[in-house]
Every structure is written in C-alpha cells, then in structure tokens.
C-alpha cells in the first residue's frame, strides 16, 4: 500500500516515464542501504559470535555494547589510502571487486521479504540466483590474477576450483526441492509452503537436501571450514592480499552478504520464507519480514557456528567430499524425491 501511495504522489507532479525511473532509483537506493547496513551488522554479529565461542567479550567500546564498532571500521576503511602494486594489471585489479559486489546485490533483489515486499519477482527466481552466484567467482579469479602476487593467485585458483565444484551441489539440492514445488518462482515456492514448510513436506529427502545445501553453501561463500581461499596461515589473505581500503571492504562486505544470501535461499526454499510457524501471525502481514529475518539469522548463526567449530579442510579432502560423497548422494536423493512426489507420500497439513 505504501509503495502505491508513493507512486501516486510521484505521478501527481511528473510524467509517467520520469516517475517510473524515480521509483527505480528509489528502490535501488533502499536496497543499497539495506546492503550496507546488513553487511556491517553481519560483521559485528560474526565478531560477537566468535567472541562468545572463544569466551571473550568481543567489540564493546564504540557505542552501546560495541553497536557502532563496524560502522567506525567502515569509516576507517573509507578514509584509508588505496594502495596497489606497480606491476599489477590495473584494469582487472580495479574491476574485480565490482563483480563480486554487484552479483551479491543482484541476488539480494529477488527475495520476497514479505508477501508484497519483493523488488523483482522473476519467473525463474531460483535459477536466476544460481546463475548470478556463478558469476561472482570471476571477480575473485580476476582479483587474484590482477594483483600479480603469488599468494593471491593461489587463493584465486583454489576459490575457482571450490566454487565450480560446489555450485553443482547447491544447484542439485535446490533442484530436488523444485520437484516438490513445481515452480522456480520464489513467490510461488512460498505459496506452496502454506500447506507446511517444504522441509516437513518432503521429509527425508528434503532434510538430506538441506544438509547438502548448507555444506555446499558454506563452501560456496568460501567460509571456514572451506576457507582455503584465504587461509591466513598459508596464503597471507588469499585473493585479496593486495587490496586495501574500500576495495578490500567490497570483498569483505560481499562475503558476508553472500552468507546472508545462502541463508535466505535456505529460508525461502526449506523453511517457508516469510510464513509464520503454524500461521500464528497470518493476520498481520508486516510480521512477514520479522519471520523471514529471524529464520535467516538462525541459519546465519548456524554457518558461524560451523566456522568456529570445524578445522579447515585440505584441497584434496574438499574435492573428495564434493565429488565422491555429496554429488552421488545428491543424485540419489533427487531420484528419491521424484519417487516420493510421484507416489504422493508428502506430508501436508
């Protein structure tokens, strides 16, 4: 309703074309703001969770209980000098962060935060997300190569290998759920879940798919225990060794936003998106955003829990895990899900 009234207000003093462009700019600005705030507070959350796991206090000086710590960090990063190596490929070096951050921002635009709050309800939503996430890795590869540093190059190569391998598992596990929903459109996927969240509807294969999805999603975002891309003890900082200031911040923010995106996809596909549990707040539409974010942050916390619990894998272990375990399990699971949908033994309320 609110968006509609803004539309009318804009139309009252400008022609239709200009109004639609203004609306696009407004929506883009809102998403950019959400992007920045989300990124900063996810960093803070990570640090708080890390401190909690390690019995420390974590950031607690800037603002109430360290509320503005990451904001201060961001200001510091903005004011920092942008350094670079002399013999780097300047064009690719400067281009690389934008690939990473633009793909993350594009992925954010398709999520239905509530029934009406969705910027871009494309009819191939889930497939669009998979397609977009496959481009982000190019930024990492270019950044690693462009900075003319051997640690960065090794980090970039590792990242490429990892992302290409685990993309398959992410795609296949989501495809398993698509058999159940019969649609790729995110709003319709949530519509289907009004008869029970998909993880309940699809019971056993859905749970297997969820586990595979979380493992490979963590690997796709290059987070521990799959963080050989930037393994501090071996590679300096991996592909962004040579980056400083805001360009480093782009990589850093995009990593956290990608974590949020992975969790948000899981929320949408497995846990009913903005639907409240048992429909307890069905009469209050704006509560949808609360439920969506609550579920997403539980999954984000799960990913942080992984990070501070498991030791890092070696490259060969990583590839063995994907190609010898996850992929075959995934393929069998796909067939199992197809059989369950065919025999109609899903659980529905």
């Amino acid at each position: 309703m609110k968006i509609l009234s803004i539309n009318e207000w804009l139309l009252s003093f400008m022609p239709a074309g200009a109004a639609s462009i203004t609306e696009m700019v407004l929506i883009a600005l809102i998403y950019l703001t959400v992007f920045a705030v989300l990124g900063l507070y996810l960093v803070l959350l990570e640090r708080k969770v890390a401190a909690w796991f390690q019995l420390r206090l974590g950031p607690n000086r800037v603002g109430y209980k360290g509320m503005f710590q990451t904001l201060a960090d961001a200001l510091k990063l903005v004011s920092k000098e942008l350094t670079g190596t002399v013999k780097a490929d300047k064009f690719l070096y400067n281009l690389a962060p934008y690939f990473v951050i633009i793909t993350a921002l594009m992925a954010l635009s398709v999520f239905p935060f509530t029934e009406n709050l969705q910027a871009f309800d494309i009819n191939i939503g889930l497939f669009f997300l998979i397609a977009i996430s496959s481009i982000g890795v190019i930024g990492i590869l270019l950044g690693g190569w462009g900075s003319n540093n051997k640690f960065a190059l090794i980090g970039a190569m590792r990242s490429g290998v990892q992302t290409i391998s685990y993309e398959l598992s992410v795609g296949l596990s989501l495809l398993t759920m698509v058999i159940l929903t019969g649609s790729l459109q995110l709003s319709e996927i949530i519509e289907v879940q009004k008869n029970g969240w998909l993880i309940v509807q699809g019971h056993i294969p859905a749970m297997i798919a969820f586990m595979i999805y979380m493992i490979s999603g963590t690997a796709e975002t290059n987070r521990a225990p799959f963080d050989m891309v930037e393994a501090e003890s071996e590679l300096g900082a991996g592909y962004h060794t040579e980056y400083s200031g805001m360009k480093f911040a782009y990589f850093f923010l995009a990593e956290f936003i990608n974590m949020f995106i992975i969790a948000a996809i899981a929320t949408t596909v497995f846990f009913g998106g903005w639907l409240s549990p048992f429909g307890i707040t069905e009469s209050i539409p704006f509560m949808g955003i609360f439920w969506f974010l609550a579920k997403t942050f539980v999954l984000v916390f799960l990913m942080m829990w992984f990070r501070w619990t498991f030791p890092r894998l070696r490259v060969d272990q990583l590839l063995t895990l994907e190609w010898k375990y996850l992929l075959p399990i995934n393929l069998v699971n796909l067939v199992l899900m197809a059989v369950i949908v065919w025999l109609n033994i899903t659980i529905q309320f």
């Binding site: 497939f127 998979i130 397609a131 977009i132 496959s134 481009i135 270019l142």
Partner: peptide, 14 residues
C-alpha cells in the same frame, strides 16, 4: 549467464 558467463568464461580464465 550460467553456461557462458559462469561456466565457459571461468574455464577460459582458468
């Protein structure tokens, strides 16, 4: 996007 931009170009870059 998936096949050309995400797949083939990544292979070429590799």
């Amino acid at each position: 996007l998936t096949v050309y931009a995400g797949g083939i170009v990544v292979l070429i870059i590799f």
